[in-house]
Each structure stands twice: as C-alpha cells, then as structure tokens.
Design a binder for these strands. Structure first.
Lengths: 211, 211
DNA sequence: TAAAAAATACATTTTATCAGGTATTGTTCT
DNA sequence: AGAACAATACCTGATAAAATGTATTTTTTA
C-alpha cells in the first residue's frame, strides 16, 4: 500500500476549494482528508488528526493565513504549508515564508504550476508560482519599497487620527499623557516626512498601512 | 432533446474556473461551452458562437468585468451575465447592474447559493448572493448614503489638503484669498460633519471621492 | 547581555485650524 | 425672472497642531 500525503485545504470560497480538490484528485500520492473555510476549524482538526500538507488561502476571516501558518508551524513544524492568494504583495509573501511557509502560489497559476509546486514542496523545497517569483524579485530596485512601517502604538494613534480625534482625545482613549501622544504624532510625521496629519492619513490609506 | 443554456465562464484563476465547472455540472440544463481567462478572448468568442449565460469575474486583466459587461450587453442584450468577485463594494455592484448585469455573487457563497442565483437569473430575475445583499442594503438604510458630493472647487481644495498643503499654500496655488479657502474648508467639513481635515481625508479616500 | 527600538513623558513657542457670523457676486436650473 | 447653489471674501476668538529640544523606562532583538 502506498503512503499518501494527507492534505487539507483551507479557503473561505467554496468554489476555490472545489477547484483545488479537482486539481489534486489528479495527483495520486495526495489524499484530501478534509476542507475548511476558516483557520479556527483547521487548528482544532490538526490537534486530533494526522496532516502532511496544508493549502491555505492567506485572506481568511478571523485569523489571517500568515498568523495561522506561524501558529501551526510552532506546534507542527513537519506539516508542509503552501499559501495562496489572488493578488499579492512582496512583504506578505516574505512574511509568510518567514513564519515557516513552504511555498506561495497565486491563484491565477496554471494547473501545471500548481501541481509542480505541490510536488516540489512535499519534497522539501520552498516553492513559488511564476508570478510570485516576479513579484518578490522586482520591487527592491525602486525606492518605493523600504517604507519603515508603523509600530503598534503608532498605528493605534494613526487610526484614531484618521477618525478625527484630537491629541487630547487620543490620550484619553489610550490612557496616555497628552505629551506622549504629541511625541508619537511627531515621530510618525517625521518618519514619513509628512507636513501634517492630512497628508499622513492620505499616505497611509493609499499604502494600506491603516488596518 | 432538451435545450441547454450555453454557458461561458470568464475568470483569470484556473482553479476558480474548475470549481465553477464542477458546480455547474450538477445542473442539467446548463452546458458549459467554453472557459476564458480574459475578456478579450470572450468578446471574440461571442461574435461567432451562441451564448446564453456568462459567469464572469469582475477583476480581470486588461478589461475589467464592469466594462466587459457593458460592451457585451450593448451588442447582445439577451445574454444573461452574472458577476463574481471575492470582496466587493456597494458602488461596484451597482455599476455592474447599471451596465446590464443580471446578478452578482460573492465567491464565498455556498454551492446552493450559486445554483439558486444562476437558476433565478436565467428565469429573468436580478440576483444577489446573501453577502452581496447585505452589502448593498446596509448603507442605504443609514444616512451614510445620500452623500452630497464635492463641488469642483471643493474637490480642488480637498485634493491639495490631502497633499499636506496649508490654507495659505492652497490660496497661493489657486490664486484665491486665504479667507476664501478657509470658507471652503469649513463648508466641506460641515457638509460631511467631519471634525477635522484628517477625518475628512480618510472619509473622502475611503469613498473614492478624491481624484 | 548589550544594543537598538519603542513607548513613555515634560515644556515652550510659533503657527494653523476651527467655529461663529456675515455678505457680495456669479452660475445654473426651472 | 426667481430660486438655489457655488464661489468669492472679510473678521475674530478659542483651540489645536507643528516645530524643537530633552530624557527615562520598557521591550525587543541581535
């Protein structure tokens, strides 16, 4: 009897689950043991069942794929995890891999790409579909990248600023001194070389750095 | 012999195409005649072939689904077109329907939802999956809708505000008095009941009212 | 465990914004 | 022709933000 890789699919789109199932049914050493629409359900499942390979969407409700991957890998480092998404950013892919992910595939990949990636991943390689490769190799050249990123506290404050809160209101909301919030505001403005909060909020929203 | 609805799927994700194919194969009066990964290929196809139903992704390369729908409906108003996407905004759905779309389904819809929507659409109804319904029904109930819209001058000023310009700088840029700009600022803030420019910019950007 | 980064806090001066009220001159639509 | 809206402009007082300089504690990471 041949050992088959026990495989689980996690995606909140039923059609995608069905599509991947169809695809994987062609591969004779892969056995789909279950499908989930959320990460929580998956976490429960892997505590009680043997799983070798997980194909997961990155944009999931409740827990996102990047965090989910980290959580799983901490307890079950041997499980091979491949991330998937429709569109992707460089930083997201890198974060996923840093959290132990074994590969990343864009959903517009061809069936052959999918199959090849899955095969290589279970053989121990870190795999990327074609478009992901171009994404992660390109944008380092432009200086558009290398945006420092807000700290958690800074993000909290930026978010409240975007809601029209004043320094005092933010201080009250976060139980901080007025002066502390003032310092954070200044640091954020300086970090991105913004003239005022209006420009800052526009910048953060355009770069999806808020929420 | 039973007449089957000649159906075409357009999606740039092979897995999704496969998933929908699987789903539709359960429906015995639907016949999938072809699948495309771009709108251009579809436009060529429908010139030479009979098509009754099209299921199309809204986010497609080259031509987006909303425009594609419009183009098709102008020449072939009888073809039933259902739009699909992973996430959605109210305005996008409304635009699709205004362009002649016969329905809109979110990809996280269940199989049953999919089937029901397709059946109802070919019977002439305008159909939405559950989550789409909540999206399009929510903001109308609140007074969030009925957004007055900026005048040209107000938009000019809002745009410059989002670029971090001060009242004086804007006045200089537009050859206006400082006091005029001040009045416009106030009017804009009052119109949307915003506390300050930061909140205003966040609001305008989230509602695509700038640019 | 040492260094770096983040979070906290204080004080002051200058400048800008916000909120209030008012008013004239164009446009645009009915 | 008249109403409604848009754009222009002025004044002022209260408040808030921005710029500058400094410093301690906590947390994270190399």
């Amino acid at each position: 009897m041949i050992m088959k890789y026990k495989t689980v699919i996690v995606d909140d789109h039923p059609i995608v689950i069905s599509g991947i199932s169809g695809l994987l049914s062609d591969l004779d050493n892969i056995e789909i043991v279950d499908k989930f629409e959320s990460g929580i359900a998956l976490l429960d499942y892997i505590e009680d069942n043997k799983v070798d390979l997980i194909l997961m969407d990155i944009f999931l409700p409740v827990i996102n794929g990047v965090d989910l991957c980290k959580t799983i890998k901490q307890k079950h480092p041997r499980i091979v995890i491949i991330g998937m998404s429709s569109q992707s950013e460089r930083s997201l892919v890198m974060q996923f891999i840093q959290n132990g992910g074994n590969g990343y595939i864009l959903k517009n990949a061809s069936f052959d790409e999918f199959k090849e990636c899955i095969y290589k991943a279970i053989e121990g390689e870190i795999v990327f579909s074609e478009e992901v490769k171009t994404i992660i190799s390109q944008p380092l050249s432009e200086d558009l990248e290398r945006i420092p990123g807000l700290s958690r506290r800074e993000r909290d404050i930026a978010l409240l600023l975007s809601q029209g809160k004043s320094t005092q209101e933010i201080a009250d909301d976060l139980f901080l001194s007025f002066l502390t919030v003032q310092t954070h505001r200044r640091n954020i403005l300086q970090k991105y070389k913004m003239k005022n909060v209006a420009e800052l909020i526009a910048f953060l929203l355009k770069n999806n750095m808020l929420n």
